[in-house]
Nucleic acid binder design. Structure first.
Lengths: 123, 123
DNA sequence: TAACTGTACTAACTCAGTTAATACAGTTAA
DNA sequence: TTAACTGTATTAACTGAGTTAGTACAGTTA
């Protein structure tokens, strides 16, 4: 469900967080669905429960999940989560576009790169 | 010439490296021009010379500068550096486009974001 | 010669991330 | 009620990347 890459520069808790964020936004984890328990996931991934806890805490702060002490963590409304993610992506994209322009690359090339991604077979 | 932001998640040596890379690619530092000496820049930025040395070492490995022991470091051919940077940006852009698509955002919106960046007054 | 240049190396420090262990409180089902 | 689950909290210790400090050596230049 979630993969950890130890060569990745990002900390583990962030990889876990991003992994679930993608699963939620893409709809693999559906609204209201139960998340794996902190202890279960920790032993599955062979990492410390505290690390999972941190990922979950931030996912809740960002509105992706909703945790209930004693019961578990649950995926919250997908729409909110997705909209939040879209806002992040828009900001990221604007920044890259600025860099692109700054590096002397043309608008046309950038757009053709994008079309290439969107022309791929759906996955 | 170079600014360091201590709130930035990236390490200092990387901020220095990126700063010079931008200066070189944008043409502010011209081909053959001398870079500030390791010790000078270190005292200017109030950081350790070793940190600057590391940034310079990587800039040389990446082909942005050319260092001569005893003489100093010099900006190398801009074309190579710029081409290298462009390749990096293309890869980065493809990745973001993939994420964009994955998040359910349309090609049109992405392209309009880009046009917005390119329509800004030149800086 | 003196003052600059880059380079190399070692030791120590800092800090974020992580682990380990333990404890507490709410939930659920037998 | 008890047992086994849930999330949460806290403290101490470890790890590794990044950074600092200090020193040393060799090439360059005026």
């Amino acid at each position: 469900m979630i993969n950890i890459n130890y060569r990745d520069r990002r900390p583990i808790f962030e990889q876990v967080k991003d992994g679930f964020r993608n699963l939620i936004i893409s709809g693999v984890l559906k609204e209201g669905e139960r998340m794996p328990s902190v202890r279960d996931l920790a032993s599955q991934l062979a990492i410390n429960p505290n690390t999972i806890q941190r990922a979950y805490r931030e996912l809740e702060i960002d509105g992706y999940i909703c945790t209930v002490p004693g019961k578990g963590s649950f995926v919250s409304q997908r729409d909110e989560a997705a909209e939040k993610r879209r806002a992040e992506l828009r900001a990221k994209m604007s920044e890259i576009a600025r860099e692109f322009r700054h590096a002397g690359l043309g608008e046309e090339e950038l757009i053709s790169l994008i079309r290439k991604e969107y022309d791929h077979d759906s996955d």
